[in-house]
Nucleic acid binder design. Sequence first.
DNA 1: ACCTGAACACCGTTCAAGT
DNA 2: ACCTGAACACCGTTCAAGT
Lengths: 205, 205
Amino acid sequence: MTDRPYHHGNLRTALLEQAARTVREHGADELSLRELARQVGVSHSAPRRHFADLQALRAALAEAGFARLGAELSNAVDAAGPDFAGRLQATASAYIRFATDEAALLELMFASKHHEQSAKTQETAERAFAVILELIREGQAAGILDQGDPERVGKLLFATVQGIAALVTSGMVEATQVDELVSDATRLFQCGAAQRAEKRVSRRS
Amino acid sequence: MTDRPYHHGNLRTALLEQAARTVREHGADELSLRELARQVGVSHSAPRRHFADLQALRAALAEAGFARLGAELSNAVDAAGPDFAGRLQATASAYIRFATDEAALLELMFASKHHEQSAKTQETAERAFAVILELIREGQAAGILDQGDPERVGKLLFATVQGIAALVTSGMVEATQVDELVSDATRLFQCGAAQRAEKRVSRRS
DNA sequence: ACCTGAACACCGTTCAAGT
DNA sequence: ACCTGAACACCGTTCAAGT
């Protein structure tokens, strides 16, 4: 519309937003620094000031993705009622929703390279994981989840949900089956503690 | 060594083998049709006869990967002893071993695009899944696993193992933690049936 | 401090031509 | 049937120069 000033002003953000759009609409393979620069209305070498190379932009995109994922998991927990089973289910569902809405982004987020190279991406990923960890602690305090190293239980839950997401986005599981898989998974996690509660009851009788 | 004939003779296989090597050593992003042609000693347009484009080569690579994965899961089941818990653990471990040895290949295998485009890749992936499915049926017949739609239980197991693999290759879980996660996971799957067995016992008392 | 424009080496893809 | 070589449009990356 209006002619742009020489300095874009917010180039980094503009590039990341356009990149996120491209990934969503055309997949991560379609990312191109030159094309992004063109779409944002800047010379092809301008992005260089903000991203050393394409890989750096991808890492930044992954990091932003983990930040959004963490926020959405956090929102899901907060919005859920007091019942723990419901909270667990809501969190897992939020993860899967993110995974299916942003399949290409999630694929990029779990691409091994960023984590090796960008400590910041790794850190943001861990903050997303922290939401799950906190939920696990809550479930353990309520006696609903297996008492064991919460890190360990949390990682297994994270893995399970991520695995369901991977199967869905890769087409090996139908979108219609997701809900039952998620509820099977969350039920499984409540099984160990329930089993021990059962023992306690039977010992009393 | 000897000068090559005009016809390579086995170009398709040679390209796939070199591509697998490249993915293993340098990652999937490093794949280049021109470079592969050079390494195999053929003109840059020769691959075109065998792979319509780079994406087609990647799909073929993914398919070969699922074939290998299926074979290794199958071997793991066959080599394991009669005890079901051990068979389950052996299969899950074989999956994780493949995932860590061939991290970049697994990432490529689960890239959504192939499955959408290549029915053959999808089919080979399902044959790998069939090994897990068969194991689930075995566990159900032995009364060790939850009786429910085996497809559903199998998919959850597949998802869990794939999720653990994703967390490891993305660096969010240490390689040293893998074994305990796998054994936690397999134990969890044997929990539902154990729980009901517990109930049966307590009802009798 | 931030951006431009020319330059370089590389790539995927196409196609007429060779064996 | 299979492969070559020139051609085209594109890309990532670099760097001296502009504001």
